[in-house]
């Protein structure tokens, strides 16, 4: 199935925009093949295949966008718009990682939402007490540690909401999503130095915001 001629043709037809030189393990390679098959089927008109992609990546995209857009509803709208845009522009997919492609679309949607929000300001993070922010607890989870992580998550999200959107975007993309400086520069349309500056200043601003709660984070370092 994964080595079908259709997939080969599809993979040849997809020209990666940026060569990904990172080592790819077997599961990642399998995921890529699966994604390419789904994209090819979706391009042929299969809504089921596209919704398969949505199922695979909606959690990841919402997690990314919700950190960039303070308001949860607006974040959800941005993610929905990102999937709409992906569906409309399936033919513009030139290969490479579907996850990265969807991530770029979602980041653009989030930044659009931020611009919209700048014109129509709203209260940031109106639902900080939402229990949906709790991390999933494993069977052998330590309740004390889980509570600490929940508390950290709350204060970090509040601090992230307090810094500027540009700094927040850079920090989320670098520290949370793992993009490198150059990728962030390409995604946000600014220079490499600006990205670094935003990250450094953003972390300083975060630390100032968390001045009273830094003990939550110093524990790991003793």
């Amino acid at each position: 199935m994964l080595d079908s001629a259709r997939l080969t043709i599809a993979a040849r037809g997809f020209r990666p925009v940026v060569d990904d030189v990172r080592p790819v393990d077997a599961s990642e390679e399998q995921a890529r093949r699966r994604d390419l098959i789904l994209v090819e089927r979706a391009r042929e008109g299969s809504l089921e295949a596209f919704n398969g992609l949505v199922e695979l990546y909606q959690d990841h995209l919402f997690g990314l966008v919700a950190r960039m857009v303070p308001d949860r509803d607006q974040a959800a709208d941005a993610v929905q718009e990102a999937f709409f845009s992906a569906y409309r522009n399936l033919r513009s997919f030139r290969g490479g990682s579907v996850r990265s492609w969807l991530g770029r679309i979602a980041i653009n949607a989030a930044m659009d939402q931020q611009r919209l929000r700048k014109r129509r300001p709203a209260q940031p993070y109106p639902e900080l007490e939402d229990e949906a922010w709790q991390p999933p607890a494993g069977p052998d989870a330590d309740p004390e540690r889980t509570a600490l992580e929940v508390e950290r998550g709350h204060v970090l999200e509040a601090a992230l909401a307090a810094i500027t959107p540009d700094q927040r975007n850079a920090i989320v993309l670098f520290d949370v999503e793992g993009y490198d400086y150059q990728e962030i520069a390409d995604l946000t349309g600014v220079s490499l130095g600006t990205v670094k500056s935003r990250i450094h200043r953003g972390r300083l601003a975060l630390r100032d915001c968390l001045a009273g709660s830094m003990s939550l984070f110093r524990g790991d370092e003793g």
Binding site: D59, E157, I171
Partner: peptide, 19 residues
Amino acid sequence: LSAALAETPAPARPRDFRL
């Protein structure tokens, strides 16, 4: 802070985004 940000749990999505 940088280390804690990387471990921040992902927020749960409020709805299904399937088309």
